[in-house]
Design a protein around this nucleic acid. Sequence first.
DNA 1: CTGAAAGCGCTTACAG
DNA 2: CTGAAAGCGCTTACAG
Lengths: 364, 364
Amino acid sequence: MTFDGLKLGVTAHEVASLAKVSQSAVSRTFTPGASVSEATREKVLQAAKKLGYRPNALARSLITRRSHMIALVMSYLENQFYPLVIEKLSQKLQRQGYHLLMFISDEAESDGVLAEILQYQVDGIVMASTMLSPDMARRCADFGVPVVFFNRVPDSAPAQNNIWAAGSPANATSSVTSDNYQGGRMVAQLLLERRHKRIAFLAGLEQSSTNAERERGFNDVLHAAGVAVYRRAVGNYSAEGAKHAARAMFAGANPLDRPDALFVANDHMAMAAMDVLRIELGLRIPQDVSVVGFDDVPQAAWGSYQLTTVAQSVEDMVRATVELLNQQMQGNAATKPAFDLPSKHIKIACKLVQRQSVRAKPIS
Amino acid sequence: MTFDGLKLGVTAHEVASLAKVSQSAVSRTFTPGASVSEATREKVLQAAKKLGYRPNALARSLITRRSHMIALVMSYLENQFYPLVIEKLSQKLQRQGYHLLMFISDEAESDGVLAEILQYQVDGIVMASTMLSPDMARRCADFGVPVVFFNRVPDSAPAQNNIWAAGSPANATSSVTSDNYQGGRMVAQLLLERRHKRIAFLAGLEQSSTNAERERGFNDVLHAAGVAVYRRAVGNYSAEGAKHAARAMFAGANPLDRPDALFVANDHMAMAAMDVLRIELGLRIPQDVSVVGFDDVPQAAWGSYQLTTVAQSVEDMVRATVELLNQQMQGNAATKPAFDLPSKHIKIACKLVQRQSVRAKPIS
DNA sequence: CTGAAAGCGCTTACAG
DNA sequence: CTGAAAGCGCTTACAG
């Protein structure tokens, strides 16, 4: 069907007729590096322009076995860190001709999601979902699709009793995270340096590697200094969870009983906790209590929070992710499955960003 | 290539051999509504399971002319409203077997982006990009792909001198927005009711329909009451822009000179403005100045802001978008291009959410 | 450099 | 209900 000289769904064949060349010729002029003479190339381009022709990416994928699509699986976007990831990752990928296919899912349904992802013949998968089934990683790899876990490292629990997992190598996937352990250490060092005595920790999701590593680094430094965590509660990385946790930890009338410093496993929860401390409990930050977060989301810099936090570099993390993906996509997925490739676990350095939520060192 | 009994890239043909049926039979068992006997269906399913077979969605699309992918084009995710849109839209679409293909782009490059989108044979396009070239809308429609503009209505400027635009009907696309005009009116009414005298407006992007409509509704009510906007500045929907604008509007030593109420075109800017007013200028909200936003992003409800705002229902907007898409995707895109379908402009009601950033009615 | 032909993995009339 | 065959729109050896 035509419309004012415009044909809908123009094919290479039609361009070929108009240009009076073979269909192969038009295919070649749209394939970088293929050999076409300048003359026929011109003819084809003219005809293509006239008809509004664009190669059908799906048909192309069928034969090249490259869809130029990367699946991004995420579980929730409440945490401001993730929109940032979508934006940067999408832009970077776009620049090299790839696009993100979105899958929102939490662990519960991830098995079905994986099957769906695979149907779309994506060239790679970025897993930024908070939860993940223990053997998800290797199952992806078994299908020959490179997977990189973003901001989490896959559980190395033993393979489930599952046909796909049978016989797979132990670690068939890669990951990029920041150095969460080191980040946790930095927070403890800062708090100790500022002479805090009653240091509390507000945990995120306990099953998550981010929380585990941050907490481990934090505890290690504290223990080495002979101090134990004064109080601990779990917020599960949600704002509501953080509020409950904050109320519980700061309950009690005696000011000398309550924590004088609080490390929160991410900024999203830290800001929710700050609201509780200041508004509900009337505490001053940092005079009554110091608060430190993790991530350095844009909101952490906002005037109302001025949150001291450990910055994860989305930029660097995304760069590493794309590099990993590129490496693993080198070989043809059909002949060189991901499990033939070394799996790398990349740790990006993080950085302490000091703002106004931690008290200065007391003059003692 | 096989791996522990698992074959990579299994095809319908291989399943057919194992099940001892024709390839057509396996295709049919994976096509809802196709006629297969229960017996062969069972055999196929068994074999498929054994081999880990999943139909190749790309190959299927080639012949069905349905990719089950919807392009989502956005320009920036700084505003918290958009992550919400991604999440809800993705979930809703996923439930009916569609997935979002992401395109991040601002106007400058949108022509190239459109071409790219079209190559992927998406079944529909959701345009949530802030900027858009005037004839983008009809160009999409010309290609037979349904387009719905989200949270913006396409400029109805005359067609550019462009081969695609030639002869196209004037309004070939649909849109869903909230009733921004009505929202603007509600804000003015509230501020008037609270006896504000020096009412200022902080604009977003002046070319955007959201800003234009909100401002128009706001002004109409003000004018009807015989009051003029006291001050006006432009923040371009960015936090930095809003801060500059706030400083400029509230400069001047005399408290009686400065605005006593501020309507900000969206929450993202409103919160930035609040930070300037309270922290830089030492003003109290709402005692010294009332602030109203627009959108009702999650942060607006946070303790530190308690922002009174006009809520846009992401839920309703997404529902309308998906309905529109479904309607327009009914016909086969190849034979029934979008411009044959009526274009609808849906307006979702918005709602005033009163929190703490507007003063109570003075007892006079 | 160029074209005819095979084939990517599917769906869908068409006969039986 | 079932299978053989054509065809979706491309790329890519293979000859020339």
